[in-house]
Simulated assay, not measured.
Amino acid sequence: MHVTTPPPLAGRRVPGAPVVLPLRLAEARWRIFPPADDELGPALYDQIDRYLGDLVVNYGRAYRPEVLRDARPVSFAAMAAQIVGDGPSVDLVVLAHAKPDVDPRLSAGCLLTETLPGAPVAFAVSEQGRVAMFTALRVASAYAASEPFARVLVMAFDQRAVPWQVAEREAVPGIDAAVALVFDRVPPGDPGGVLLWQHNGVAPDAVGDRLAADLAELAGRTNPTCPVRVLAGPGVPPDALPPSLDRSDAVSWAGPMATSVWPAAATGAGPLVLVEYDDRFGYLSLCRLDLPDAA
C-alpha cells in the first residue's frame, strides 16, 4: 500500500498567469475504438441497468437502456488495456474523463495498477468537461513534485454511450477514444517543462480576448525561429480564434470531449499548443509542450 499526503499548496499565483509544470513528454499514443464486439448478454445487461438506473434516479434523470445496447461502448478498462498494454513502467497514473464509464465491472485505474510495471498509484479527474486532460496534467505534476515519482502516465477517455437523460446544452462524446501520454519529471525551471494556462468563469463572448492575450504572452516566451503549431479544440467558438491563428489549424475531431485535440500530441514533432474551452463550466485552458522526436 502506498500512503501519501495531498501535494503542498502552491504559492500565490497571479490570476491568468501560466504555470510551468516540471514534466517533459516522453511518449504519446491515441486510438479510436469501434463498437465492442462482445455481447454482454441479457443477465449482465440487467445488472448494469439496475446499477445505472439506481444512480441516475438520484439526480432526477431518466435512464435509457436502449442507448447502451445500441452503442455497444468500449469500457475504459478495455481501452486502457489495448492502448497501453504491458508498459511502460510508471509511478503515477492519472485518468481524465468528461463522462463516467458506463461499464462498472472493472476500474481502469485498478487494471493499470495491477498490470503496469512498478504498481503505480492511480486516480481519476472528472467534472472538468472538455478541459479534463488539462486539469489532470496539472494534478499529476503536483503529485510528481511532492513524491518520488519519476514518470507519470496521464490518460483521457471518451465513450460514445450516455444512457441517461442529459440537459439540453450538455455535450456528450460521440466516439470511443483514448489518449495516453507518458511524462518524465524534470528539474524545476527546465526549458522542457510544460506551460499551462487555466482560466475559469470565462464567458463565450470573452474567449477571443482571453485567448489572444494568452497567445501573445506565449509568443513572447517562444523562440521566433522555432515554428509552433496551435490547435484549437471543438469547444472553442470559431469566432474566438484570433486572426493570427490559421483557421486550418482549428481541428475538430469527430465527437471528442475529454480527448479533445490531445491526439495531436502523438503526431509530428517540435512545440505544440493545445487550446480547449468548455462553455458549460466557463473553463478555458491552453497547454504548450514539446513533442518528442519520432523514433
Rank of each mutant, 00 (worst) to 15 (best):
residue 265 A to E: 06
residue 123 F to H: 04
residue 18 P to H: 09
residue 23 L to P: 00
residue 102 V to D: 15
residue 194 V to S: 08
residue 205 D to F: 14
residue 266 A to I: 06
residue 175 I to M: 13
residue 181 L to M: 09
residue 253 W to L: 09
residue 258 A to K: 12
residue 243 P to Y: 15
residue 249 D to Y: 13
residue 266 A to K: 06
residue 103 D to R: 15
residue 11 G to H: 11
residue 230 V to M: 06
residue 172 V to C: 05
residue 144 A to W: 04
residue 38 D to Y: 10
residue 292 P to T: 04
residue 65 P to R: 02
residue 280 R to E: 13
residue 13 R to V: 08
residue 226 C to Y: 14
residue 172 V to G: 13
residue 14 V to T: 10
residue 1 M to Y: 01
residue 187 P to I: 02
residue 157 F to I: 07
residue 292 P to L: 06
residue 175 I to H: 03
residue 243 P to E: 10
residue 26 A to R: 12
residue 166 V to T: 10
residue 269 A to F: 08
residue 74 V to K: 02
residue 287 C to P: 05
residue 93 V to D: 01
residue 249 D to A: 14
residue 72 R to C: 15
residue 204 P to Q: 01
residue 72 R to I: 04
residue 38 D to A: 11
residue 281 F to L: 12
residue 53 G to K: 02
residue 73 P to A: 01
residue 130 R to Y: 05
residue 66 E to P: 13
residue 78 A to W: 00
residue 276 E to I: 05
residue 180 A to Y: 08
residue 287 C to V: 15
residue 88 P to H: 02
residue 173 P to H: 00
residue 50 R to S: 06
residue 5 T to W: 03
residue 182 V to F: 08
residue 255 G to R: 04
residue 245 L to A: 10
residue 114 E to N: 07
residue 178 A to I: 09
residue 96 A to F: 08
residue 244 S to Y: 04
residue 165 Q to P: 14
residue 208 G to Y: 00
residue 124 A to S: 10
residue 183 F to D: 00
residue 25 L to F: 09
residue 6 P to Y: 15
residue 136 A to T: 01
residue 6 P to N: 08
residue 193 G to M: 07
residue 11 G to T: 11
residue 225 T to K: 15
residue 288 R to V: 08
residue 10 A to F: 11
residue 265 A to Y: 00
residue 133 M to N: 05
residue 74 V to I: 13
residue 240 A to Y: 09
residue 260 S to W: 03
residue 187 P to A: 05
residue 287 C to M: 10
residue 106 L to D: 11
residue 204 P to I: 00
residue 112 L to Q: 03
residue 148 P to W: 00
residue 7 P to H: 06
residue 19 V to S: 10
residue 133 M to T: 15
residue 177 A to T: 06
residue 250 A to K: 03
residue 290 D to R: 14
residue 99 K to M: 09
residue 177 A to G: 09
residue 160 R to Y: 11
residue 108 A to Y: 06
residue 141 S to Q: 03
residue 133 M to P: 06
residue 68 L to I: 05
residue 131 V to M: 05
residue 289 L to P: 02
residue 206 A to G: 11
residue 165 Q to Y: 01
residue 215 L to S: 12
residue 293 D to F: 11
residue 103 D to V: 06
residue 80 A to P: 00
